[in-house]
């Protein structure tokens, strides 16, 4: 009986953990854009296409400038939850694009503060940071599932 209960607890934990992990991970990165950008919400698929260089212009026709982080929690979460790649496969993906001339690579920064500082001054820029980081000077973009 005790064994049976333990099994139930284990199954329950295995079932809840990914949901919990996914929910937490989803709220851990915040997509930020230039404050003058008229967009306030985009779909998850659009975010993916933006960071893969497939969606290159905002709806008003201005050029999207992508900013990525070298590594870190926000970087890992965005890749895992939205883009569906590992850090290495994401790097290789951009290598392919750069060395086939498909597009220029995204700007890369090491910290949330660097991302915020860049996005705040470049119209059309989009980046991501940890949700608990200071994002004054930029606008948070809502991502719809």
């Amino acid at each position: 009986m005790k064994m049976l209960r333990l099994t139930y607890v284990f199954i329950l934990a295995m079932g809840i953990y990914p949901l919990l992990g996914s929910s937490l991970a989803y709220t851990q990165e915040l997509i930020v854009i230039h404050p003058d950008n008229s967009n306030s919400a985009v779909s998850q698929q659009e975010v993916k296409n933006i960071f893969l260089g497939k969606k290159t212009h905002w709806d008003d026709g201005s050029r999207i400038k992508i900013v990525v982080q070298k590594r870190g929690t926000a970087h890992d979460n965005l890749l895992k939850n939205t883009i569906g790649m590992t850090s290495v496969s994401f790097r290789n993906y951009w290598r392919k694009r750069v060395f086939t001339g498909s597009s220029r690579p995204p700007k890369t920064f090491k910290s949330d503060a660097d991302v915020v500082a860049f996005v705040a001054t470049k119209p059309g820029a989009i980046g991501y940071i940890n949700s608990n980081s200071d994002h004054s000077g930029v606008k948070a973009l809502q991502v719809n599932q």
Partner: peptide, 19 residues
């Protein structure tokens, strides 16, 4: 002069680090 695709990886044949 543009690279052309034939298969999934044809246009990165010269880029060792990308495969």
């Amino acid at each position: 002069k543009v690279k052309v695709p034939l298969g999934i990886y044809n246009n990165v044949l010269d880029i060792d680090a990308a495969r």
